[in-house]
Design a protein around this nucleic acid. Sequence first.
DNA 1: CGCCGACTTGAGCAATCTCAATCATGGTGG
DNA 2: CCACCATGATTGAGATTGCTCAAGTCGGCG
Lengths: 261, 261
Amino acid sequence: MTIDTSRAAQRYDAVRRKGRAGSRASLPAGPDELRKAPLFADVDEATLSRLSADARIESLQDGDTLFHQGAGVTDVSFVMSGYVKLMRMAPSGRQTLIGIRSDGEMIGEAPAGGDEIHAVSAEAVGAAKALKLPAPRFARQIKESPSLCAAVLRDSKERIARLVGEIESLKSQNADQRLAHFLLALCPPDEDRCRFRLPYDKRLIAARLGVKQETLSRAFAKLRVHGVRTETRNVHVESVAHLAEQCGRPGARARLAFQAS
Amino acid sequence: MTIDTSRAAQRYDAVRRKGRAGSRASLPAGPDELRKAPLFADVDEATLSRLSADARIESLQDGDTLFHQGAGVTDVSFVMSGYVKLMRMAPSGRQTLIGIRSDGEMIGEAPAGGDEIHAVSAEAVGAAKALKLPAPRFARQIKESPSLCAAVLRDSKERIARLVGEIESLKSQNADQRLAHFLLALCPPDEDRCRFRLPYDKRLIAARLGVKQETLSRAFAKLRVHGVRTETRNVHVESVAHLAEQCGRPGARARLAFQAS
DNA sequence: CGCCGACTTGAGCAATCTCAATCATGGTGG
DNA sequence: CCACCATGATTGAGATTGCTCAAGTCGGCG
């Protein structure tokens, strides 16, 4: 369920972090970069250029931390390339993956003014670039620009919908069904037979689905019977329709897996 | 995990609904009622009185539906008394509890204009009263009143934080720990030994925690060893501090439960 | 070649679910 | 007052799911 147990996680992090440079490249950014974030798609130009005044782009390496849970919110960040994972740290040291951001998505919550604190920690998964805006400036613009405010409102709703979906699947589906759902979302549209690449490694996918790596591996094995083949990161789906059928049935899979073995 | 399986749920609903009147009382409401909702705590009087123009209060009986998932959003609703449960219905008919609202909380999401659709279904748990405002009017006021907009923004953030917490606990805690957390939140502050009443029946608590009723019952049984006694709906906690310790440990409980049996 | 990291596989165990029986409670009709 | 029923809660037994620990595979890379 969690990414790792406390002691194991510490070891794991120690390994990943070895030999990484401490300094980060940071470049200024303009309104054009901001516009790439869907959040800003409908925000007026004037607001955007005000927002971008102190914007900068940071380059991150695998494992770099953007911010820690509990720390004060100084910036609003957006993923410009790569992936960023959001995690909750329990007092015990246990880490739980909350979500993964990519492609212009906002990392964390939009600051609305006042003293705010990060509810999660954010860390780069592989090399990534992040766009950062100072939080106070963003909070001021939210109050002054109706289009920005509307955009943030809409974005919050999408976020909530996603989280609700997440809770539903954690409560009502088993690991196999969650994996089927996950893969289904990755299949390109309009093709029944398809092939694609997993966006990140299986360890992370497992954490995203809320299971252990071993369990994920076995779930993949069960899907083989249903025409889903994997070679490391590449996935081959014989029939998307057939895969979709696997999303809502607990019993059928066991029977078929038995026949195949 | 889910509230009930498809067929069982249908039977269950058929039973609960028997002999209930179809009509609902509906009374007009004013700004004073609105002010009771925390969302409106800091909203200016003018906005509030505009919002309350078409406000009305509906009386609901156990099992009454406020709205269905997938239906268009025509109103914004608030719980004035009692409890309302939010559920997701899978195409299979499976129902998953998403949350429970009470005490002036908003039910569903704030409409921001445009055609919107309910992401969940809402149903009264026991007798309840709901305050309803027409969605279009609310959406208009959001655009025109900065204080309302700020309030909705703040509320969305709280909602997201709650959902994130929910996901964390589903992913990282077992049933016993989730129950301990749940009870801890119900304990009145500043007392180590306390006594209180469960807000709703154990069937609902189980759904809230994402386990079956039987599992919840066994979790309560395990907590008895730790000074938590229950008589139907009444709970005695010998030591809140001791209960809090149970929130973060998987192993210890099993040993003690074994000794006790 | 040999190691490392990511992944897979196996075996046993723990948590949870399922099905079924039982019990307590409150209401209802006789 | 009692028999009876419906509902919610508890308990038991067995199946299932997912976890843990451990070993093994595989591909790249120095």
